[in-house]
Simulated assay, not measured.
Amino acid sequence: MTSSIKPIESRSVTEQVTNELRRSIVAGDLAPGSTFSLRSIADQLHVSFIPVREALRNLEGEGLVITRPGRSAQVTPLDLEDLRAIYRLRGNLEPALARESCLVITDAELDRLHEQAVEYGKTHHSIHTVFEAHHAFHAEILAPAATSWDLRVLNSVWRAAERYIRIGFGKQNPGENTRIKGEHERLIEVFRGRDPDAVAAAVLSHLKENEQSARLALVDEPRAVALEF
């Protein structure tokens, strides 16, 4: 059992336990395929058994854990077919939303997102810090065209994709912050052109490159070093 889960100092609500377990799974602190008892998690988080059980139900619904008979659970293993399904969903939804969003998102919002993208390139940020912020970037650039249900679905598949990417990346590549900065600056520039076809194509290309990088990491190819959520 890993010791990297951060203890929750006081009795926690289920949402807090869910968030901490999700963070540990997505970051790879709880390894894919690993099993653990609900009691051991409760002890590490300094909470009772009940919120852990409820949190695991939430995470099972997100595809991150598999609950087992008795009081144990397994972190869902990584799988090529699951990765393909994740990116099929993203490829159907994100380019379509981007086509609409580019016509209504304001210049001021694009300026703000550009500043956010520039921030990714600063070398004092760890790759994990960049991933945390860049989830919000993708939500915000699509938000003008997205419904609450779109965002619920996207949040679920983004978390699933991020787990593959962050675990596959392993340790930070010194040039990765600069690469991520450049990728997102280019997306902003395409959005500024207000051409729905060009925007949809750019988003789809972005997703295909990310999926390929994740696939290479999953089969342990040494080339898989340029990974991104």
Rank of each mutant, 00 (worst) to 15 (best):
E140A: 12
L97R: 04
S48G: 15
I86V: 10
P95Y: 02
R163H: 01
H125I: 06
V157D: 00
L89G: 02
E115F: 14
T76S: 12
S101V: 07
V118W: 04
H114K: 12
A139H: 12
H128I: 13
L83D: 07
Q44E: 14
L64K: 01
T129G: 13
T67L: 13
E132W: 09
V52S: 09
V157H: 00
L64G: 06
T147L: 03
L154H: 03
Q44G: 14
P95E: 05
G70N: 04
R166H: 03
N173R: 13
N155A: 13
N58C: 08
L103R: 11
A85P: 01
P144S: 05
A85L: 06
H135S: 14
R112K: 14
Q172G: 02
S48W: 14
V153Q: 01
G70F: 03
I165Q: 15
I165D: 10
L83R: 10
R84A: 09
L45G: 13
F137M: 06
I165F: 10
E94T: 02
H125C: 02
A85W: 05
E140F: 05
G175P: 09
E119T: 05
L142S: 04
I141F: 05
F49C: 00
V47R: 13
L110D: 10
L80F: 00
D111M: 12
E115M: 11
H138Q: 09
A73Y: 00
G121H: 07
I41S: 12
I167V: 15
T106I: 08
H128Q: 09
R99Y: 05
L154C: 01
V153S: 00
R84Q: 07
L38K: 08
E60W: 06
N173H: 13
S40N: 07
F137V: 10
S156A: 12
E119C: 02
K171W: 08
H125F: 13
H128K: 09
D79Q: 07
T147M: 05
L142R: 09
L97D: 02
Q116V: 04
P69D: 08
T106Q: 14
D82Q: 13
E62F: 09
R152V: 04
E132A: 14
L151R: 10
S37M: 08
L93M: 12
C102E: 10
D107W: 06
L38H: 05
P69A: 08
E115T: 11
G121S: 10
R57Y: 14
E54Y: 14
Q116W: 07
G175S: 15
W149E: 08
H125D: 03
L97Q: 06
I50P: 11
A161G: 03
S40Y: 03
T67C: 11
P174Y: 04
E109Q: 11
R88I: 03
A96Q: 11
A136E: 11
Q172N: 01
I105T: 02
S101L: 11
L93K: 12
